[in-house]
Simulated assay, not measured.
Amino acid sequence: MTFNEPVRKYILSGIVAFILVGLIVANVMASKQDEKFAAKEALYNQAAQLQAEGKFEDAWEAISKVLKGEPNSEIANYLAAIIAANKGDLKQATIYMQKTLDINPHKVEDPMFMIQLGELFVAVERYDDAKTVLLRCQEWGWAPEEMPNYQEHVATLLAQSENLQ
Rank of each mutant, 00 (worst) to 15 (best):
residue 111 P to G: 09
residue 133 V to M: 01
residue 108 V to G: 02
residue 135 L to H: 15
residue 115 I to W: 03
residue 85 A to N: 12
residue 136 R to W: 15
residue 74 E to P: 04
residue 122 V to D: 03
residue 74 E to S: 12
residue 136 R to P: 04
residue 122 V to P: 01
residue 146 E to F: 06
residue 80 A to F: 02
residue 69 G to R: 08
residue 138 Q to P: 05
residue 124 V to G: 08
residue 92 Q to W: 10
residue 101 L to H: 03
residue 88 G to L: 02
residue 145 E to H: 11
residue 70 E to I: 09
residue 139 E to I: 13
residue 110 D to N: 13
residue 67 L to G: 00
residue 113 F to T: 07
residue 102 D to A: 13
residue 100 T to A: 13
residue 121 F to E: 14
residue 123 A to L: 12
residue 143 A to V: 09
residue 78 Y to T: 04
residue 67 L to Y: 01
residue 146 E to S: 12
residue 102 D to L: 10
residue 91 K to C: 08
residue 128 D to M: 09
residue 88 G to C: 02
residue 77 N to E: 08
residue 78 Y to L: 11
residue 124 V to A: 10
residue 88 G to W: 03
residue 112 M to S: 11
residue 88 G to I: 01
residue 145 E to F: 12
residue 141 G to L: 08
residue 96 Y to S: 05
residue 86 N to E: 07
residue 142 W to C: 09
residue 106 H to P: 05
residue 108 V to D: 09
residue 102 D to I: 08
residue 141 G to F: 08
residue 130 A to P: 04
residue 81 A to H: 01
residue 69 G to F: 08
residue 119 E to M: 13
residue 125 E to S: 15
residue 85 A to D: 10
residue 109 E to A: 15
residue 75 I to L: 13
residue 116 Q to V: 11
residue 126 R to G: 10
residue 87 K to F: 09
residue 113 F to D: 05
residue 125 E to R: 14
residue 77 N to G: 07
residue 134 L to G: 01
residue 73 S to P: 06
residue 86 N to D: 07
residue 127 Y to A: 07
residue 99 K to P: 02
residue 97 M to K: 02
residue 91 K to E: 15
residue 138 Q to N: 10
residue 90 L to D: 14
residue 137 C to D: 03
residue 143 A to P: 05
residue 135 L to S: 14
residue 135 L to C: 11
residue 141 G to D: 09
residue 130 A to S: 06
residue 118 G to K: 01
residue 131 K to W: 04
residue 142 W to N: 15
residue 107 K to Y: 12
residue 86 N to A: 02
residue 104 N to C: 11
residue 139 E to W: 12
residue 99 K to W: 02
residue 120 L to S: 12
residue 133 V to E: 01
residue 85 A to K: 07
residue 137 C to E: 03
residue 119 E to C: 03
residue 95 I to L: 14
residue 144 P to H: 08
residue 76 A to K: 02
residue 88 G to M: 02
residue 124 V to S: 07
residue 121 F to R: 10
residue 80 A to K: 00
residue 98 Q to K: 14
residue 124 V to D: 11
residue 107 K to N: 13
residue 96 Y to G: 05
residue 146 E to D: 14
residue 115 I to N: 01
residue 141 G to S: 08
residue 88 G to F: 00
residue 133 V to Q: 01
residue 106 H to C: 10
residue 118 G to C: 04
residue 129 D to R: 06
residue 94 T to P: 00
residue 92 Q to H: 13
residue 86 N to Q: 07
residue 117 L to E: 05
residue 74 E to T: 14
residue 118 G to F: 03
residue 85 A to F: 05
residue 99 K to V: 06
residue 68 K to C: 08
residue 87 K to P: 06
residue 88 G to P: 01
residue 119 E to R: 13
residue 80 A to L: 02
residue 128 D to S: 13
residue 130 A to Y: 03
residue 112 M to R: 11
residue 133 V to K: 00
residue 87 K to T: 10
residue 115 I to G: 01
residue 119 E to Y: 09
residue 127 Y to T: 09
residue 117 L to P: 00
residue 145 E to P: 08
residue 70 E to V: 06
residue 108 V to H: 09
residue 137 C to Y: 02
residue 83 I to C: 00
residue 122 V to K: 04
residue 107 K to F: 10
